[in-house]
Amino acid sequence: MITVDDQELEWFEGMTVTDLLERIGHQGPCAVVRVNETHVSRPRFDETPVPDGAEVYLIPMIAGG
């Protein structure tokens, strides 16, 4: 089990950030996801695994700077 924006989500072996976003049906901009203490950028969503028990937050990152 993992949490995504404080909501529980079932985890599976080999889950990537891309899998996670598909699983929750995320729509709209999302440039960065925080997986535990690490910020993961969109170009790395496909290659970044999500470990079991992870705490995940979606960060739109659309008007900072």
Binding site: D6, A31, R34, S41, R42
Partner: peptide, 21 residues
């Protein structure tokens, strides 16, 4: 604490996000 964690790392989180993009 859930988003950019600036109270722990300031704006340093931006570096790798910029690099990745």
């Amino acid at each position: 604490p859930k988003q950019n964690q600036m109270s722990q790392g300031g704006t340093t989180f931006i570096t790798m996000i910029m690099n990745d993009h």
